[in-house]
């Protein structure tokens, strides 16, 4: 299981925001999505996920509401705020530049 330290600092935030940009989700589903979409490479445990969610909520990028989940239980659903959407665009662009730069060095050097 990947610990948050294995992810580049701030990357988890970006992943969460990206996933929530598709549709509102609860914590469990977010973790599942990250695993799926990364082709089983990245795994996020609750010990990293929930503090990150609470921090993002505190910062105002996401908001939470209680809804009934697909298996008929109450779950806390997070969704992107308007500010969060803008933040995501900015951060994603930033990430792409960074990743491209790193891969340039890694492949050619």
């Amino acid at each position: 299981m990947s610990k948050p330290a294995d992810l580049v600092q701030g990357t988890l935030d970006l992943l969460i925001l990206k996933i929530l940009a598709l549709e509102p989700q609860h914590g469990w589903a977010i973790a599942q999505r990250i695993t799926q979409m990364s082709g089983d490479v990245l795994r996020v445990g609750q010990s990293a996920l929930y503090p990150a969610l609470h921090k993002l909520e505190q910062q105002g990028w996401i908001r939470a509401e209680w809804k009934t989940s697909e298996n008929n239980r109450r779950a806390k659903y997070y969704s992107l705020t308007l500010a969060g959407r803008k933040f995501l665009t900015r951060e994603a662009a930033q990430w792409q530049r960074l990743a491209a730069a790193i891969s340039l060095i890694v492949t050619h050097a």
């Binding site: 914590g27 469990w28 929930y50 909520e57 505190q58």
Partner: peptide, 27 residues
Amino acid sequence: QQFHLRLRSIFRRDLVDHELDDELQFH
């Protein structure tokens, strides 16, 4: 929103803790 959340965390602390508990129970 931030302000509201902050107030909620301070004054409805039991509620917020309870929600966190529920959230983790769901997980």
